[in-house]
Design a protein around this nucleic acid. Structure first.
Length: 312
DNA sequence: AAATTCAACAACCGCGGGGGG
DNA sequence: TCCCCCCGCGGTTGTTGAATT
């Protein structure tokens, strides 16, 4: 696929910081002509900038709905949660933070949160090194913290816990009764485990996730959780992101040395077997019914105006 | 007061998806 | 189906001001 040469290579174009006059020209032009057609915009507006630069300037700085000021504590917590779900999908994260841009969040992460997490990691590492020469096999670093800190390039690699967003439907489900946690099974789990084809409660079925295609894998005795290979599109992701992340406990370091899984993501007050795990590019759940209320928009506090106001 | 280091953030760059001809 | 182009994204770099030595 051929690609047009980068417009920034063109000669005679201004680069670097934007002047107030350039800002005004761009703002006036977009106000009267609207966004889009970035490639032609500079010529028409009379700017000696490339289209990409104009777009970036508008989206990250000049847009009227840009929220100025420091990132609040609530926003920071939300960013952390979303980053653990999505990885470095800055635009998706920014989409949940009205008035904030992906660039702003990315910068904030790199200069603040990432360093905090790295510092916390180093702190934990020193503590564990100093105290557990004899307990090396028992204690493992928090996979979430490890993944979130350090090299951002590695954030989505390896045993990622981020949610894949490219998929359109659920293609595979695996349920294996956990021998070490038999008390956590419920009737639904038993049924799932004994039938070749799984039916999932209607409370969970939300388009476009095609739960009718859930299949059991026959040789699944290596796993110890219900696993499903999600493929999800933006609609599902939108629903997913509308979940009440404030209830997620998955990413807190609870010092559970018995497992290096991603731990419990959602815990229903009515069920102690509710599990939604995110691990290795897959979502894991021992009780899919528990996801119903999550996917429902009832807990859509992220979009609730009151909550948004609280973030300000 | 000058030099150096650090932090914050704006801007650049290259890649890839997707639409349209 | 292929090709071209537009656009958006994420990583990286550059710039600037503040803090420190």
């Amino acid at each position: 696929m051929g690609r047009s040469p980068c417009c920034s290579k063109a000669e005679g174009l201004n680069r670097g910081a934007w002047t107030a006059m350039e800002d005004k020209i761009l703002t006036d032009y977009i106000k009267s002509h609207g966004e889009g057609k970035w490639r032609n915009l500079p010529k028409r507006a009379g700017l000696k900038r490339c289209g990409k630069s104009c777009r970036l300037r508008w989206l990250n700085y000049l847009r009227p709905d840009i929220k100025r000021g420091n990132i609040t504590r609530d926003e920071e917590e939300l960013i952390i949660r979303l980053h653990k779900l999505l990885g470095n999908r800055w635009s998706l994260i920014a989409g949940r933070l009205p008035g904030r841009t992906d660039n702003e969040i990315k910068n904030y992460w790199n200069t603040n949160i990432g360093k905090k997490i790295q510092a916390q990691l180093n702190h934990n590492s020193k503590r564990s090194n100093a105290s557990n020469h004899n307990h090396q096999a028992q204690e493992k670093p928090n996979p979430i913290m490890e993944r979130s800190a350090g090299d951002p390039h590695q954030a989505n690699k390896g045993s990622s816990c981020v949610v894949r967003t490219k998929a359109t439907k659920c293609t595979k489900a695996v349920n294996v009764i956990a021998s070490e946690r038999p008390q956590q099974l419920n009737p639904r789990d038993q049924i799932i485990d004994s039938k070749p084809v799984v039916e999932v409660g209607s409370s969970l079925v939300h388009d476009p996730v095609d739960f009718s295609k859930f299949m059991l894998e026959e040789n699944n005795n290596q796993s110890n959780n219900f696993m499903m290979d999600f493929e999800m599109d933006e609609n599902f992701l939108s629903d997913f992101l509308n979940m009440d992340f404030s209830q997620l406990s998955c990413f807190e370091d609870r010092g559970d040395s018995s497992t290096n899984r991603c731990d419990k993501a959602h815990s229903s007050p009515n069920s102690d077997q509710t599990l939604l795990l995110v691990s290795g590019d897959t979502l894991h759940g021992s009780n899919f019914q528990s996801m119903g209320p999550l996917i429902d928009s009832e807990l859509d506090w992220l979009c609730d105006k009151e909550n948004l106001n609280n973030l300000v």
